[in-house]
Structures are given as C-alpha cells and as structure tokens.
C-alpha cells in the first residue's frame, strides 16, 4: 500500500533527521533510491526545485515525492509523515520534559551525532558529485568525466570565492541556481 509506505518512510526520516533540511538529504536519497521512487538525477533536479521554492526543504521534497507517486493524497500523506515526528517530539518537550536538553545523556547523544550528520552531508555531496560530474555511482560502472559539468562546477566555485572575497559573504543559493541554469543553457547551446 503506497500511502502507508510513503507515510512510514517520511515519518522515519522526520524522526531521525537531526540538524535541519540538509541533514535530511542523505536519508531521503537512501529511501527514494531503495524504493525506486526517483532516479538519482530526478532527485537532484528536485532538490534544486525544493531549494528555490519557499518553505522547509524536507517538506517540499516530501510533498513532491508523494505527489509524483500517489497524487494529491500522496503528497498530503508524505507531508504529514515528515512533520508528525517533529510535532510529537516538540509537544512532549514543551509540555512534559522541559529540561530534556539539560540531561547529560541527552547532551552526550547530541554531541555524538553532530560529527556524524556533518559527515553524512559531506559524504552525500561527494557521492552525488561523483555521479553528476563523473557518472560514477558505484564501482561496477566506469567513470566518465562530464566535462561541461566540471566546467560549470569550476565557474560556481570561482563565483563563490569571488563573492567571499569582494562581498565577504556566500552568494545566495537562488543566485547560484539561476547562474548554473544560465551556464547550462549557454554551454548546451554552444556544443
């Protein structure tokens, strides 16, 4: 039953994704690839859409996957799935366990998962990077460099460091998405 599967998958993701939107991407990627709900490429496309539309990235991705798999009801159920754990946990903290975060064990748990979350996000950047820039998703396929992709990546890095140098801050994600879209159109039209 697709509705139950969607709800449980997103419920699980909502319940363990400490550290906000980006921390959810490794978990979402695993879930959608293992269920065969999206290809890696479709997922990456959709992360871009979720980033450039308002609202929490995790909710956006859940809604999209739910809708493509099971229509309007699917999107509502997936969204409910991803927000329900937050709702329950926060209610418990706000109503009963006001000092939950002050317990040594809880602080230890949170301190222990922090480096893991950062590693999962960077690890996902590496694996999505390898598959996008080198078509290298696992050891059974031969890596083929995607020259255009690599050039676009270098352009983005140049803009990133240029901005840091001149404006002393990171360029906004939306600007970078628009820029990369422009570069994609430009290079594809030339070649």
């Amino acid at each position: 039953m697709i509705y139950l599967k969607l709800f449980l998958t997103f419920f699980k993701i909502g319940a363990v994704s400490f550290g906000g939107g980006y921390a959810m991407i490794p978990l979402i990627r695993e879930a959608v690839l293992s269920h065969g709900w999206l290809t890696e490429e479709e997922l990456v496309d959709f992360i871009a859409v979720a980033e450039s539309t308002p609202g929490p990235v995790a909710v956006n991705i859940a809604t999209f996957i739910g809708s493509t798999k099971a229509g309007l009801l699917g999107s509502i159920i997936s969204t409910l799935g991803v927000i329900t754990p937050s709702f329950i946990i926060i209610l418990i903290i706000a109503a009963i366990l006001k000092n939950l975060l002050k317990y040594k064990g809880v602080q230890g748990f949170l301190a222990g998962i922090r480096p893991v979350i950062v590693a999962l996000i960077l690890g996902t950047a590496v694996t999505i990077g390898l598959s996008t820039l080198f078509a290298f998703s696992d050891v059974s396929v031969k890596p083929v460099p995607n020259l255009m992709g690599i050039i676009i990546f270098l352009c983005l890095l140049a803009v990133h460091f240029g901005c840091r140098l001149i404006a002393k801050k990171k360029p906004s994600p939306i600007i970078m998405i628009l820029l990369s879209a422009g570069l994609g159109i430009l290079f594809n039209s030339i070649m």
């Binding site: 496309d45 990077g129 996008t132 676009i152 890095l157 879209a181 994609g184």
Partner: peptide, 15 residues
C-alpha cells in the same frame, strides 16, 4: 539544458 547546470549547482549547495 538549464537543469544540466542546476544539477551541478546542487552538488555545490550540499557541499
């Protein structure tokens, strides 16, 4: 075409 560039940007954003 645009999405061939945007996919690269997602790698950048996550990293």
């Amino acid at each position: 075409y645009a999405f061939t560039g945007i996919r690269v940007c997602v790698v950048y954003l996550i990293a």
